[in-house]
Nucleic acid binder design. Structure first.
Lengths: 226, 226
DNA sequence: TTCATAGTTAAATATAGAATGAACTATTGA
DNA sequence: TCAATAGTTCATTCTATATTTAACTATGAA
């Protein structure tokens, strides 16, 4: 068991492979060539490293024509990379939001069903600012005004409250170092936005894209410039 | 940011250092010599590696006389090692419980306030077997008989239910690959056992020790042979 | 005060395995 | 059909860094 652990650690521990993992952390699938550019090394070298990661089942591939798309093989792998990214000391957060600089939605252990990444964080910020949700010793609560807002927005919180599932909780997004909204409320918001075609899921990625309509609405409702 | 990530990955990625981290995963603090034995290398070499891990703030030391005790510097570091340990494929679980072979309590992101490790898992098993708690699609619930059991045991579930905090949830213990009980119920159980002096916290470790009384009671109440 | 134990430092050596170079196959598009 | 792109394989080179050898300091026990 120990040797397997050491092997896994060694695989991620190499500089080039670590850079690959770092790149893949944004949830998308990358081709070998893309990775070789992102990581700044030769195609042969990338091929060699991808081979090792593949063999160890840390990555999986999907062939499409002459392209091969590489991604994390499981969420467990993403967790490792994520946990590692969390070791990096928090950078100073500038007072003004500069979400423009941020990369696309990043992998998050719960981002399968709620909004993570730059939009997720900006959204949480906005809801907090508008006092729709309130932070109370590390948890989120919905304010009385918030209740109204959600109902206006077409999200039925009542149903969510009845569910066994965690209602509303802050989830730390590694790339933003800020909290975004998880729990059933997070899911409801996400679904509403998909339903309204503000955002769309992409085919082979955990990332989402924002529609033209979404852009306008994000600005209007949350003052978020995408 | 990327370079910091690569550096961290590289630090954990070396075979000897990975073995150190693996050893430290049980939550205790180890001396340099102990580690050199556990990891099977020379004291000089261990010293060199510990130096690197210290400088990178992955470990912290405490000097006691001529001994130096090394441990994870933060829970974030433990999370990384834990996440990595979770990459290892699950071994077959034999039908009969052989908790005797298990190592002491292992580090767990929530084990600060609930029972993890071998006892935690065995306890969860027992409570499930006695139908005190029931598994229902990946969550734990307390059965009607369970309600009675908890009250007999001197644990007031009513209070816990009122709390905002998560009531009862299964938490995967990496070393056991089985679920144990987290949430406020987990904490209440732990506290009750401490209160009754079944178990005691150790000074410089996350591990707990079982008292003679505890041994008997564990057997009696949960059929757990410690 | 002396010996043993715990741990460190520094220079010398050894080696795993990453990168490179060259030659190859497979797919697409023109 | 040919050229271009995507990716791989393998033999060779190279280098970072882990380990060893040796000499050292600090603490505690006898």
């Amino acid at each position: 068991m120990e040797d397997q652990f050491i092997k896994a650690a060694g695989l991620i521990g190499d500089a080039t492979r670590a850079a690959i993992m770092w790149t893949l952390l944004d949830g998308r699938a990358f081709t070998a060539t893309e990775l070789s550019i992102a990581v700044n090394t030769s195609p042969q070298n990338i091929s060699m490293h991808l081979g090792k990661l593949l063999e160890a089942n840390l990555l999986s591939v999907e062939k499409q024509g002459r392209h091969k798309y590489y991604r994390f093989s499981s969420k467990e792998v993403a967790y490792v990379v994520e946990a590692m990214a969390n070791l990096i000391p928090k950078p100073e957060i500038s007072s003004k939001k500069k979400i423009e600089n941020y990369p696309p939605v990043k992998y998050c252990r719960t981002c399968y069903d709620h909004l993570a990444g730059k939009i997720g964080v900006a959204l949480a910020d906005s809801l907090l600012e508008q006092k729709i949700i309130i932070e109370k010793n590390n948890t989120f609560e919905i304010s009385p005004e918030g209740e109204k807002w959600f109902s206006d927005f077409g999200v039925n919180i009542g149903d969510a409250k009845k569910q066994k599932r965690i209602f509303l909780k802050p989830c730390l997004d590694w790339s933003e170092r800020r909290y975004h909204i998880a729990g059933s409320v997070g899911t409801l918001l996400l679904n509403k936005m998909l339903e309204q075609d503000w955002i769309r899921r992409t085919k082979d990625s955990r990332a989402i894209i924002i529609t033209g309509k979404g852009e306008k609405e994000m600005l209007k409702n949350f003052k978020i410039v995408v």
